[in-house]
Nucleic acid binder design. Structure first.
Lengths: 259, 259
DNA sequence: TCAAAAGTGTTGTGAATACACCCATGG
DNA sequence: CCATGGGTGTATTCACAACACTTTTGA
């Protein structure tokens, strides 16, 4: 069984197209929203899909860069220089790769995709471009409930991405990516409430976060001009995404809300 | 900026080679071991590497199947029918994809790889085949300490895989993949001790696992012929890999042992 | 009958909850 | 001076760690 593997000529291995697809999340209007584009070209022309496109072997240094470029081209949402992550607007991390035979219906080519999760604080309206006729924020509940049909296997990718975001909210400070660089604990708490779909006690949350000095740091500044007593402003620390339980130590999977 | 994206001809996108690479783990001789093969062909001929190879668009139905096939070809380690997972020997899950420019030095082609984590209970000696001259189990500590040089970016892949295995040990019953279908709680505990590199209290572990009825189920049978009092035998339940904290709720990342 | 390993009881400690209460600001 | 949201105090509950102890086998 092992021997005849040699009959496969290493110089004649199949060639794939490789794409990147992005699940871009933001919290807007008290709900988790996902960025979708309407496809300008075949296949699935006119259908909603995740923003993304082919990796360019010559122009893209790696997969992350390809994802950044596609997001900028199709939606106008940008990344700042990678070094100044403090001022950078959009968090990006890889989810996983997807391929099965004929996943892309175009004849003569197999296309594998690498899916990414991108997160930003109350992002602006997208500007369609490239392969996108139209770009819009949609509540993730609409997508999960299949109220909007997606091209390719993008429905599955979105399900996986939402699961991953909810999980990482529990054991990292990923929530801080949904909030501006300087934020109040009330704003951070709101992210948890929206994504988990249930209230979080204001007072316990406050103490818990104050105790996580490894993850967030007070700036000393206060909010002003808002209703009520001014709130302390915090910034995330560089180590913010290192693991370590954040909230809900005993939360079990089958109680996860559908909201 | 978005407009000139159209100048990129969608029919002429670059073609990639796509490979799968496997990090195969087992617990052997009181240490976590990783399966390596010695490369029979260029590039990196004669060097140690992860087992893996090109995805065959016609023969492989999806990425998981390609990974299973490569493992069988290069090491003789097999998977049983997917349906009878109960009797199946090797657990397989995707880690993530890797690509950067010239990641594979072969001229004229860019190669992206999809890395997998595979786990089995005290696996047998591998039988080299295909692109592998030689196949052997190595302690992961040797690889992490760079006492063995690996081809391509496989060193990085191994680091990522070990981190992921340690993490999933904390919030899933992934440990059960390292022991036979029927196992004692002492055997399961041994997996934690080996991978985390520190002792786990026998009595607290016993109670904790007994309380996780969602994950493991007693068979009613007992061990015999061993030293000491016979132990109850357990089997994992189908839901075994659903999240939910298992042990060490308050374990922080920077205390992870290096072994 | 002794060593070895399985399994039980009990207690202290710290973290997560629940909720009463006080503080500082805008209107 | 009142509504609104920020922030503090404190009791209860619960999970986990620590460790003394009993049970059941093989040699």
């Amino acid at each position: 069984m092992a021997g005849n593997a040699q009959s496969y000529d290493a110089e004649a291995f199949p060639r794939f197209g490789v794409t990147v697809d992005l699940t871009v999340f933001t919290v807007k209007d008290d709900a988790l929203h996902l960025l979708l584009v309407r496809r300008a070209n075949e296949p699935y022309e006119g259908m909603w899909a995740l923003p993304g496109g082919f990796v360019r072997a010559e122009a893209d240094a790696n997969l992350d860069r390809a994802a950044q470029r596609e997001l900028r081209e199709e939606t106008g949402l940008g990344f700042h220089a990678q070094a100044s992550a403090a001022e950078g607007e959009i968090h990006l991390e890889q989810l996983r790769a997807y391929w099965r035979q004929r996943r892309d219906p175009r004849p003569g080519i197999e296309v594998a995709t690498v899916a990414f999760i991108a997160i930003g604080p109350d992002l602006p309206e997208p500007i369609p471009g490239g392969d996108a006729h139209e770009a819009a924020w949609r509540p993730v509940t609409d997508v999960l409930a299949e109220r909007v049909a997606l091209a390719f296997d993008h429905q599955q990718i979105v399900r996986d991405a939402v699961t991953e975001v909810r999980r990482r909210l529990e054991d990292t400070l990923l929530a801080a990516e949904f909030v501006p660089r300087e934020f109040t604990l009330a704003e951070l708490r709101h992210v948890y409430e929206v994504i988990w779909g249930e209230p979080v006690d204001k007072r316990n949350f406050y103490r818990k976060m104050k105790s996580l000095e490894r993850f967030i740091r007070p700036t000393g500044r206060l909010t002003s001009g808002r209703q009520g007593r001014p709130a302390e402003l915090f910034v995330r620390t560089p180590a913010e995404l290192a693991p370590g339980p954040i909230l809900r130590s005993g939360r079990s999977a089958d109680t996860a809300p559908d909201d």
